[in-house]
Computed example of a mutant assay.
Amino acid sequence: MRYRLTFITGLAIGYVLGTRAGRERYEQLRKCAQRFAQNPAVRNTAESAALTGREAATKAFDKVEDRLPNSFSTRIRSLRDHRGAAEDDWGTSNT
């Protein structure tokens, strides 16, 4: 019984210390990731990658549009029109 109690006590202490250190490390990593995401260079790169991806998708769609079912092409065109009407404000265009 004594060994069981010692083991459970050690387990509890290890859990408390581990979660405390784990939470501090988690907060440290979260703050680092937040600073990284708010970096203007990172935001510019992400924005240009998104624009390049959109352009590539548009070119690919234009090449295969006549081979797709009409309902599919119509849906893509409506999504394209909807996206073009409201520009997103993500990226560094507002900074």
Rank of each mutant, 00 (worst) to 15 (best):
Arg67Pro: 00
Ala49Met: 14
Leu51Thr: 03
Leu51Ile: 11
Lys63Val: 09
Lys63Glu: 14
Asp66Val: 14
Ser71Tyr: 03
Glu65Asn: 10
Glu55Met: 09
Lys59Val: 12
Ala60His: 08
Ser73Thr: 14
Phe61Ser: 04
Ala46Leu: 12
Arg83Lys: 14
Glu47Val: 04
Phe72Ile: 10
Lys63Cys: 01
Phe61His: 02
His82Phe: 13
Asn44Lys: 15
Arg75Ser: 14
Ala41Gly: 02
Arg54His: 10
Ala86Thr: 14
Thr58Phe: 08
Phe72Pro: 00
Glu55Ser: 11
Leu79Ser: 12
Ser78Gln: 14
Arg43Leu: 11
Arg54Met: 13
Asn44Leu: 14
Pro69Val: 04
Phe61Leu: 12
Asp89Ala: 13
Asn94His: 10
Ser78Asn: 06
Thr92Pro: 01
Ala60Ile: 06
Ala86Ser: 13
Ser71Glu: 15
Thr74Glu: 12
Thr92Ser: 08
Asp81Ala: 12
Phe61Pro: 00
Asp66Gly: 10
Ile76Pro: 01
Glu55Pro: 01
Arg80Asp: 07
Arg77Thr: 05
Lys63Phe: 12
Thr92Asn: 10
Leu79Gln: 13
Asn70Gly: 07
Glu87Tyr: 02
Asn94Lys: 13
Leu68Gln: 09
Thr58Gln: 15
Leu68Ser: 09
Ala50Cys: 00
Leu51His: 10
Gly91Glu: 03
Arg75His: 11
Glu47Met: 05
Thr92Glu: 05
Glu55Leu: 11
Gly84Met: 12
Arg83Tyr: 08
Ser78Asp: 11
Asp66His: 13
Lys59Cys: 01
His82Glu: 15
Phe61Val: 00
Ala41Ile: 06
His82Asp: 15
Thr74Val: 06
Ala85Thr: 11
Asp89Lys: 13
Leu68Gly: 04
Asp66Trp: 08
Ala57Glu: 14
Gly53Cys: 02
Val64Tyr: 01
Thr95Arg: 12
Ala46Gly: 00
Pro69Phe: 10
Glu55Gln: 15
Ile76Arg: 05
Asn70Asp: 12
Ile76His: 03
Ser48Arg: 11
Arg67Ala: 15
Ala41Arg: 07
Ser73Trp: 00
Val42Pro: 03
Leu68Cys: 06
Ser48His: 05
Trp90Leu: 11
Leu68Ile: 02
Arg75Phe: 10
Thr92Val: 08
Thr58Val: 11
Ala85Lys: 12
Leu68Ala: 05
Asp81Leu: 11
His82Thr: 13
Thr92Ala: 05
Asp88Ile: 04
Trp90His: 10
Gly53Ala: 07
Lys59Ala: 15
Ala50Ser: 00
Ala41Asp: 06
Ser48Gly: 00
Val42Glu: 01
Thr52Phe: 02
Lys59Ile: 06
